[in-house]
Every structure is written in structure tokens, then in C-alpha cells.
């Protein structure tokens, strides 16, 4: 047993805690790995890994297509649609960005006037950065939801023999759930503030709900109080690593450098983290 082929999801209740920092450095530390950026609203990992040989794949979603010649204006579909994505005036209007594509309109249409077409909602970019295969999802601007993008990303690595590091979207909404659903292990990253602790608790509730094994990385720790650490003690959460606040780290990170490639200290630090995770996953 080891970490090969396992899916490690990195998450945090709030953004900006260092989720991407932890993800890219873990991925870069391994001789071969997958890095999957599921934070499709604000993907950032590729800015650090700078992958090459990018292949782009469009991600589409099915939406209804109206055959206006067949539509006679029964409005059954308009009445049925729970999302209010359809309206009928002198012809049927489909609001594609509101449609969830449940298929209900097609089922209820007595004239068979509805079929499907594909609507582009974003893209994924697949590239390579040294030993890291990168998979990045991008939600198209002003598109409300990108669950199919996350599904496609995770599909790409589902049978990979390599370790996959999954950079999950912040929060605990459905996209975060989708991202961690099939993870073998979760890493929760938290800041040393009352905000951080509040959001760590949310992430904790989420991994508990999915009954995932997990550990916590405390980032940007300072001398003085750390409400997140207190919460770990209180809830008996395993602390995997503490990364002290460091201006050098801040600078390297702001420029998009990967710490483990630039600094011996951080290579060792993340080495210890990887070792701990490997042990935890192997349990």
C-alpha cells in the first residue's frame, strides 16, 4: 500500500488559506503525480506549475433545442420547468443559462418539439510540468455553475496509477462536495484567525459527513493565539503540519514560484507532510 493511485483532496472553508500552495507543492515534490485544479471559478495552480504542451478541451452541457416548426404552444414544458428556464410568447424561448437540463421539458412535450444541443460552459486544460500532469478547469465568465467541468476533470484521473492532488473549491457548496466525493484522503488548510477557525469547522463538518480520513495543515501561523489550532485540539483533529508565517514564503509565492523547488527548508517541510500523508493513506 502507498499513496500511488490515491486521490488526495485539499480543501478549506474559505479562500486564500494556502490551499493551492499546499496542493502544488505536494504535487511538485513527487517524481510523478497529477494536479487537478477543481477551483474552476478561480483556478490558480497552473500559475505556479506553468504547464507546457497544453491541450484544451471544451466542456459542454446539454440544453434543450426547440424545433419551432413542431412546437404548437401547448406550454406543457413551461409549466413543468421547475427552474423557470422556459417562456412562451409567440414562440418558445429557452434560457440556457438557467436550465439545469433535467430533461423534463422533453418528456412532457406532446409534439416531440424538443431535442438537445450542447452549450459550452468552460474548458479544461491538460498539460505537463516536469513530473506533474496538470488538469485545470475554467468556468466561463458569467456562467453560473460548472459541475460538469469538475466531473470531467475528475474523470481524467479516476483510473490514473499516479497520486492525484485535487485542489478543491473553497467553501462547502455542491462543487466542493463533488470535488471530494471520491477522495481517499483530505487535507484541510486553515489560517490562524477566528475567521480561519470558523471556516475550518465547516470543512471539518464536510469531511465528517463524507466520512473521509483527513488531517489539518495550519498555515501562516504566528506567535500568539491560533483559534484554528485550538479547534483542532477541541475536535481532536490531526495536525499534519504548521507552516509559520514567513515573508520569504510570501514573496516566492506571490511571484508564482514553487517553494519546494526554490528552498531546501520548504522541500524538507513538505517532505515531512508527504511522508505523514502517505502513512495516513496507507492505514
Amino acid at each position: 500500500m502507498g499513496i500511488k493511485g490515491k486521490k488526495i483532496a485539499v480543501l478549506s472553508g474559505k479562500g486564500g488559506t494556502g490551499k493551492t500552495l499546499v496542493s502544488v507543492n505536494l504535487a511538485a515534490l513527487m517524481s510523478e503525480s497529477n494536479y487537478v485544479d477543481c477551483d474552476i471559478e478561480e483556478p490558480n495552480g497552473y500559475l505556479f506549475l506553468k504547464p507546457k504542451n497544453i491541450k484544451t478541451e471544451k466542456v459542454t452541457r446539454e440544453v434543450p433545442l426547440v424545433n419551432h416548426d413542431k412546437c404548437t404552444g401547448y406550454k406543457k414544458c413551461v409549466e413543468f420547468c421547475k427552474f423557470n428556464a422556459l417562456a412562451y410568447t409567440s414562440k418558445l424561448i429557452v434560457f440556457e443559462n438557467i436550465c439545469h437540463f433535467c430533461g423534463g421539458c422533453m418528456l412532457v412535450c406532446p409534439e416531440g418539439a424538443l431535442s438537445t444541443k450542447e452549450r459550452e460552459i468552460g474548458r479544461i486544460e491538460i498539460g505537463k510540468s516536469s513530473g506533474v500532469n496538470t488538469y485545470t478547469g475554467f468556468l466561463k465568465i458569467s456562467e453560473p455553475s460548472g459541475t460538469p467541468i469538475i466531473e470531467k476533470l475528475l474523470d481524467k484521473v479516476s483510473t490514473s496509477p499516479l497520486t492525484s492532488i485535487i485542489d478543491a473549491p473553497p467553501g462547502s457548496a455542491c462543487t466542493t462536495m463533488d470535488s471530494i466525493k471520491n477522495a481517499d484522503y483530505c487535507i484541510l488548510v486553515a489560517e490562524p484567525t477566528v475567521f480561519g477557525a470558523h471556516n475550518l469547522e465547516m470543512a471539518y463538518d464536510l469531511v465528517e459527513l463524507f466520512e473521509k480520513p483527513f488531517g489539518v495543515v495550519l498555515n501562516k501561523t504566528l506567535d500568539g493565539e491560533n483559534p484554528s489550532k485550538d479547534l483542532c485540539v477541541e475536535k481532536d483533529m490531526k495536525i499534519l503540519l504548521e507552516i509559520p508565517f514567513d515573508e520569504e514564503l510570501g514573496r516566492l509565492n506571490s511571484k508564482g514560484h514553487i517553494l519546494v523547488n526554490e528552498s531546501k527548508k520548504y522541500k524538507e517541510m513538505f517532505g515531512i507532510l508527504l511522508h505523514k500523508i502517505t502513512k495516513e493513506v496507507g492505514r
Binding site: 413551461v78 427552474f83 423557470n84 428556464a85 417562456a87 412562451y88 434560457f95 438557467i98
Partner: peptide, 18 residues
């Protein structure tokens, strides 16, 4: 009846008006 819709309230309200 659109007022309490989760989404697309404007569309449904417009349908009522139409």
C-alpha cells in the same frame, strides 16, 4: 406565483404578464 421561485422568477413573472 413567481415571487417565491428559487430561480428564473423574472421569466416566470414575464410569462404571467404575457
Amino acid at each position: 406565483s413567481a415571487a417565491k421561485s428559487s430561480g428564473g422568477a423574472g421569466i416566470k413573472a414575464a410569462q404571467i404578464v404575457v
